[in-house]
Design a protein around this nucleic acid. Sequence first.
DNA 1: CTGAAAGCGCTTACAG
DNA 2: CTGAAAGCGCTTACAG
Lengths: 357, 357
Amino acid sequence: MTIKDVARAAQVSVATVSRTLNGHGNVAEEVRRRVLAVANDLRYTPHAAARSLSSRRTQTLGVVLPDLHGEFFSELVRGVDQVAREHRLHLLVSSYHGRPDEQVSALRAMRGRVDGLLVMSPYAAAHASIVEELSPALPIVLINAQSDAPEVLSLSVDNYGGAQAMVEYLVASGHRRIAFIAGPEDNFDAHERLRGYREALARLLPGEPEWVLPGAFDEASGHAAGQALISASQRPDAVFAANDMMALGCLFSLVQAGLKVPADIAVTGFDDIPLARYVHPTLTTMRVNIAELGARAARLLLTRLNVDAAAQDAQPIEPEPNPQHHNQSDLVNPRQNEPLRPELIVRESGARRGGGA
Amino acid sequence: MTIKDVARAAQVSVATVSRTLNGHGNVAEEVRRRVLAVANDLRYTPHAAARSLSSRRTQTLGVVLPDLHGEFFSELVRGVDQVAREHRLHLLVSSYHGRPDEQVSALRAMRGRVDGLLVMSPYAAAHASIVEELSPALPIVLINAQSDAPEVLSLSVDNYGGAQAMVEYLVASGHRRIAFIAGPEDNFDAHERLRGYREALARLLPGEPEWVLPGAFDEASGHAAGQALISASQRPDAVFAANDMMALGCLFSLVQAGLKVPADIAVTGFDDIPLARYVHPTLTTMRVNIAELGARAARLLLTRLNVDAAAQDAQPIEPEPNPQHHNQSDLVNPRQNEPLRPELIVRESGARRGGGA
DNA sequence: CTGAAAGCGCTTACAG
DNA sequence: CTGAAAGCGCTTACAG
C-alpha cells in the first residue's frame, strides 16, 4: 500500500497525491477530494522513512536523558510530549544510564531520526564535545547545562536563586544557624544550590559561619546528615537540604531521635516531590515545575527548527521574512530561554521559629 | 557526509562500505579495517531514514500509552527502555491523552517509524479495530488488554489473582466484613480486581454479603468512600481499595474521624506506589512490578520480531530453523506471556485483627 | 493545475 | 570478496 496505489486508484500522478496529502494547495478542488477519498478508502498512511528521506524532515523530537528513573524524568518527558503533540511531532526518548560513552553513540544515532534534540546532562559539561560536534547539523537545546558553542541553546532552572530564596525565608523566620546538606560533587544543580546557600548566608548573616554536610541526593545520605547534626555539640536552628529526598531522610532521623520539627529544628528541601506534602510534618520546599521546564525546552527547540526552516525557505529567492509562516508568534518570545524560577512552598517543617527571633 | 564519501575515501564501492558497517562478514580483513578507519575519521553515521527505507527495519520500538502522567507510565517506559537498550533499539513514545480518535491516528503514524508496537489501553477493547487493522503489518503486544485477533500478543498483570490473594490475607487475619472500593467502570484492571474480590469472598466467606463502594482510582473517591463507611450503621472490619490512591484517601478520612487503623479497621490497597511506605500507618498492598511488566512486554515483542525476521530469512531457500540466528534463546521462553503475579506487601495498615479471629 | 523524472542515502540480490 | 545497479517510497524543482 504505497502512494503509487493511491495514485493509480485516483487516476492521477504520485506527485498530485503527494501535494494533496501535504496540503500544498495547488491542486484542483475536485481532484483533491477524489485523492483524499481514495486515500481514506485504502487506509493509506505515508511511509515515514521514505518521507523523511526525501523531505529531510522527520517530524520527530529526540530527548536524551541520563536516566528514565523517577518522577523528574517522567515529568520532563510529559512536558515535552505535550508541546510535541500540539505540533504533531513524535518523541524519541533515549537514556544513557550514566555512561557517557553510550551517550555519544546514542546522540550520533539520532541522525536521520530526529529534527532536533533536547539533551539533559547533569554532569557538568561532560558531553560538550559531542554536542558541539552535532549541533551544526542538528539543532540542540541543553537542559540544565551550558555550552560554549553559541549555536547550542540552553534552558535551566534557577537553582542559585531558588536556594537563596530558601535561605532568605529561613532567616526571615528567625533562624540563624542554618546547616546545608549538599548534593553530589559532579552535579550541576547541586553546585548551584550550594552556591545560593553560601551567597545568601554571607549576605544576610555576615558573621555566621556556613555549615555544609555532604550528601548524595538520596534518602540515606540525608539520614546520615541528620544523625551527624544530632550528635553535634551545638545543633543548628534549621537544615536546608539540597533536595527533598535528603530532607526527608534528615527529617526521619531527627524525628527518630525524638526531636520536634519544626519546633526544635526546621527542615526544608528542594524540588517539591509528591511525597513532600504527605509526610509529617509536611515539607517546606522550593517547587520546580519540571513539566514546564520540558515544555519550554521543547518550545525553544521548535523556534530553532522553524527559524532554520524559514531560512532555508528564504534562501532560494526572497530574503524577506514571512511573518505568517507558521502562525506561532508565541514561540518567538524573547524571554523563552530565561531560567525557570522555583517557587517557595511553605509547609509545616519550615515554620517560624517559636515566637520569632 | 554519506556512504558515498566513505566509499570514495576508502576507495571501495558503497556496497562494500555497507557490508562492512553492517558486519556482514564477507569483506576482506584488510578492506574492512580500511573502511572502518575511514568511517571513523570522517565521523560517519548512517542516515537512519535511508537505512530504514531500504532495509525495512527501523531499529525502533513504539510505545503507545494513554498518558505519560505518573509513576506507572514512567516505570513501564523504564522497563521497556532497558530491554530496548540491550538490543540497541530506539524508543518512540506516544500518548493519546484519553482521546481514542487520537490514538487511531497515532497508531497509523507509526508506519515506517517502528518495527513493532507496545500498546497499553486500559479502556476495555476500545481500540480493538485499529490494533487489528495494523497488526498484520506491524507486530503488536497489548499490555493489560486482550484482543480476539490471534496474531496480537498480550501481556497483563494478574489483577484477578492479586485481588483474591489480598482477600485471602484479610480473611486469614481474622477479618470478616470486608468492604471493597471499586475503580472506574470502564477500566480493565479495576474490573479484574473487583472480580477477584467477589470470587474470593464467595469462596472463603460463603455467607458474607459483598460490600462494594464506587471509586475512580483517585484519592478523593477513596476519601468519599471512607466517609460513607464511617456513617454506615455497621462498620466493616476491613476495607480493600482497588488501588493505593483510593486506599490512602480512605485511610485519611478514617484517621480524621478518629478511627485507629488497623485496630478499628484495616485498610489495604493495590499497586504499592512509593507513598505506600511513607504514610502512617504504612499501607498493606499488592505490589505490581511495572518495570518488569514493561520489560517482559518488550521481550515478548522482540520474539515476534525475530520470529518474523527468521521466517523471512527462511522463505527464499531453506525452511530449516537456524538455532543460532540471534543467540537469544532466553527470548523463546514459553512462559513469557503468562500474567505477572502481584506480590503481597504486608505493612501496618492491614495487620491482624486484635488478637486473632 | 499536473506529470515525468531526478534524487534523498541507504541495502541487497545478482554477476563476476 | 567486490561492484554496478535496482529499488525502498516518498518529495520537489522543472516543464508544460
